[in-house]
Design a protein around this nucleic acid. Structure first.
Lengths: 355, 355
DNA sequence: CGACATCTCGTTAACGTTACCGATATTGCT
DNA sequence: AGCAATATCGGTAACGTTAACGAGATGTCG
């Protein structure tokens, strides 16, 4: 009932001795470069396999002096939502960690309400000579065009937060947005009885651009319709970022519809919480929304919001850089990764959701 | 709207040059050893602060050749639950990573149904000369005594999975068990209406030893009672690990009580799922349980289980070793850490809960 | 056959840090 | 004063890997 670890790692020197070659040759085989005869290459490879050689990444990191440079192209945080601050936090953690490897990382922040800023920034990125770029693809067609240009210049690309299928060269790090909508619907089915009125609320300026919202809404409505419990589902846009404007719209709609549950499709759920906090005479519906923002958590803690669905944007940012690092520095490129976990936060577990 | 990273890290050599001393002296200051005059020490320290020197951990890892040894003392996995396999998985990941630093790690597995095996294993640990030990404290008094002995021998200790407050020398890595119970109660309140019958089910042999179950149950009942919705709460023990035995007991109790919801206080929730899968004529209650085990997830996927509350045991195991590593190798000892996140899994998000 | 390119392989200096060893300066004691 | 003990510091090998450089062997073409 006891296990011991054989902690004697074989190094490149050991392999060299066993194969009767120099460490340089072993290195050449390992990084499969040229200047090795087929015979010795096979010999060395067999010994490597036999002894299960694992390279010491720390030594490698110390030795290699590459000057890779990555660009990060994400929305700047607005006064309305601190979401992108969280992503940026993960990015900066990555910068801290990977700058040790001689990687330099530049951050480009665009205005997600103004496509021209995205175009400007993407041109800036192209004008410099980056090896790879991390992109949050808010604007579909512009991003697609940008990635095309990157491919011509042999610049790798990776998406975070939301995906455009088959577009980026290195894939997507983030949640499966459709499932995110389904999960919200699943929780909805627990919160309200059959024949309830459910209001889907999209709050943001420039809504036509947020293509990823539609994926969530699809997942949500498909799930509820399949349940066949007679839910009355309404989908309403409030294309504003100003609370007072939103409140006026909200008042009108809520008076009209009298919903049993409101599903806010993005991180602006706190404004709905604030609304019902101020209009106490109105019957408060159940509320489901997204993202671990301070203002959202406040209303989760007070019981105003029932569930917050979260996706750890900081981890996404970090993982994107981490994947680039692994892609360039190690050969350890597992091409397709699984979508990230989708977390459920309630009043009872939000305290432990570290970020 | 663009940020650049100043990726020129100052090294120990730079500092030495700036302070007009040798790198050996800088090293002495950094690891605050003796053989440095107060004057030069102050001077070097000021330059270190001024240039925000950060040691290169990879170089350190490469250079240092310490022979630390850790012990891991956790239950062996039984045929009834693969829970400890997950923890072990995280432990092994840690071993893989930290063996590079010359740390050797020995694993001791005891039988959580037989306290004598724990005593035997703990004596084995004491007979060797470990620097620290990771413990899953199932048996309260025996673990307390063991930690006392460790302290005498200056062996550090750290707990995983559950805690004995103020006992271990390096704290506890795991969820807040009381909140875990509260969360289950919170979800219960969404699943069933007022005046429902709720059955708390403790399934395991040697139940008197599982002190951590009481903490969960306290959190659960306190929450529900405070809600004041007229819930009828029953607490039942089934001290067995054999499905057929459990099924007989379960049949009797369910016939008797006819519960609207069953809360299984540990990872054995799959046997309840199996039970209601076999006895289709009995009205299936809502079911809440613990842990991301294959057999549990199976019933979550089929809709038999509503919620699974999870605590990432693999991450716990890894983090425990990671904390020991940081404690001994770096000075980076943030003494008290936050409890781990408590995850909620449903049929809609379990697919993305990577392990 | 000579000149030169190509292929194969070994030697070695770095990367940033640690720790041992020895050199020099200072102090303490008789 | 002489001598030992101690305090303070610098030099340097080593950790495992990478890559630049060059040496030797073989091949190619006039």
């Amino acid at each position: 009932m006891e296990e011991k670890t054989d902690n004697k790692k074989v190094g490149i020197k050991e392999i060299a001795k066993l194969a009767n070659v120099s460490i340089a040759t072993v290195d050449r085989v390992l990084n499969n470069r040229k200047d090795v005869s087929d015979k010795t290459r096979a010999k060395v490879q067999s010994i490597i396999k036999e002894h299960n050689y694992q390279p010491n990444l720390y030594a490698r990191a110390l030795s290699v002096k590459n000057n890779l440079s990555f660009a990060v192209l994400i929305p700047k945080t607005s006064s309305q939502t601190g979401y992108w601050d969280l992503c940026l936090k993960g990015i900066k953690q990555g910068i801290e960690e990977f700058s040790t490897f001689g990687i330099s990382i530049d951050i480009f922040l665009y205005d997600q309400e103004d496509v021209r800023t995205f175009i400007k920034m993407s041109e800036d990125v192209l004008s410099r000579n980056f090896n790879a770029v991390v992109i949050a693809p808010i604007f579909i067609s512009e991003t697609t065009h940008f990635v095309e240009e990157c491919k011509k210049r042999r610049i790798e690309s990776i998406f975070v937060n939301s995906d455009i299928k088959g577009c980026s060269s290195l894939g997507y790090i983030g949640p499966d947005l459709y499932s995110t909508g389904r999960l919200a619907a699943n929780l909805t089915s627990y919160l309200v009885p059959a024949n309830s009125k459910v209001l889907i609320l999209n709050i943001a300026r420039g809504l036509q651009n947020y293509a990823y919202l539609n994926t969530k809404i699809e997942g949500y409505t498909n799930y509820l319709n399949k349940l066949d419990r007679g839910f009355e589902i309404l989908n309403i846009d409030i294309p504003s970022n100003n609370y007072d404007e939103i409140a006026i719209d909200l008042l009108r709609h809520v008076d009209n519809i009298n919903p049993d549950l409101i599903f806010v499709t993005n991180s602006r759920v706190s404004v709905v919480g604030r609304f019902f906090d101020e209009y106490r005479n109105i019957k408060k519906p159940h509320i489901i929304g997204f993202d671990f923002l301070t203002e959202n958590v406040e209303f989760l803690a007070s019981g105003m919001i029932d569930f917050l669905i979260c996706q750890r944007p900081d981890k996404q940012g970090y993982l994107a850089l981490n994947h680039l690092y692994r892609h360039f520095l190690l050969k350890d490129v597992k091409e397709n990764f699984k979508p990230m976990p989708i977390d459920i936060l309630t009043i009872e577990n939000y305290l432990f959701y570290e970020n």
